[in-house]
Simulated assay, not measured.
Amino acid sequence: MAKAEDTRKRVCVLFSGRGTNMASLIMASMAPDYPAIITHAFTNVPGAGGLEIADFHNIASAVVDHKAFDSREAHEAALLEKIEEAKPDIICLAGYMRVLTESFVRRFRGKVLNIHPSLLPAFKGVDTHHRALLAGVRIHGATVHFVDETLDGGPIIAQAAVSVDPADTDDSLAERVLETEHLLYPHALALVTSGKVRLSGSRIVVSDGAATGQPALFSPPVGSTQRVL
């Protein structure tokens, strides 16, 4: 009889920094009924904090330093070799601070997820919290989406919202959004790897069970009955 773990979707995580979102995915995957398992973790930054997290959890990891290559394409080709060896069903970008080429996205269309610290399509790119405060928004948050060829684009899988306090600074708002990300990303990955959410062309298809019992837009904590919008 096959082990339950054998049926779970294999996930490769790409990261550039502390790896806190990767850690949230790893912790979620420890539940016996979670539909995914984190098998590999790759970074473009030597000494990135996430390497210690991967090592602690006995997850295979490697560094593919982009500075060691003459071009984005050469670096991506080396990364691609690692990914192909890992044979993932899903690739999760978790603070991976590199823009993927169009050829990479086309190769893995429907298999690459990203988490972004804003309620897309608002505030694409960097400095999202600072820009949100400057804009005077009252609701901010995080988004998990399928990756397409555009910057922070692609069909949205799930979002979580946080209120913006008048006393917020860039750092205080960032901290609350990050806490929400740690809940949202495992939730979104579970939706995809369980088949409750799938990509059809350029649109998201949600199963009835996910639509009625697992909201994709809500006010944290994840699983709360209080929804936003």
Rank of each mutant, 00 (worst) to 15 (best):
D6P: 01
T7G: 15
T7A: 13
R8G: 13
R8L: 15
R10V: 09
C12F: 08
L14Y: 01
F15M: 06
F15T: 02
R18Q: 14
G19M: 03
M27C: 12
A28N: 07
S29M: 03
A31K: 15
T39F: 05
H40G: 15
T43N: 07
V45W: 01
G49R: 01
L51D: 13
A54I: 08
N58H: 10
A62P: 08
A62N: 10
V63H: 01
R72T: 09
R72Y: 02
H75K: 02
E76W: 07
A77H: 02
E84W: 01
E84K: 02
E84C: 11
E85Y: 11
E85H: 14
A86C: 15
C92E: 13
L93Q: 05
G95M: 02
G95D: 02
Y96H: 01
R98G: 04
E102L: 07
F104A: 13
V105P: 05
V105E: 10
R106G: 05
F108L: 10
R109A: 09
K111M: 15
V112Q: 07
S118A: 14
S118T: 09
L119M: 00
L119T: 01
K124E: 14
D127T: 02
T128W: 07
H129S: 13
A132Q: 00
V137G: 03
R138H: 06
A142Q: 00
T143N: 03
V144D: 09
F146D: 03
D152V: 01
D152S: 07
A158S: 07
Q159R: 00
A160G: 12
A161H: 04
D165L: 08
A167L: 02
D170A: 12
S172I: 05
L173A: 07
L173V: 13
R176G: 13
V177I: 08
V177A: 09
T180S: 10
T180A: 15
T180R: 06
L183P: 02
L184N: 00
P186W: 11
A188F: 04
L189T: 15
V197M: 00
R198D: 10
L199K: 02
G201S: 13
P215L: 03
P215E: 03
A216H: 06
A216K: 05
F218E: 12
T225M: 07
Q226V: 14
V228A: 14
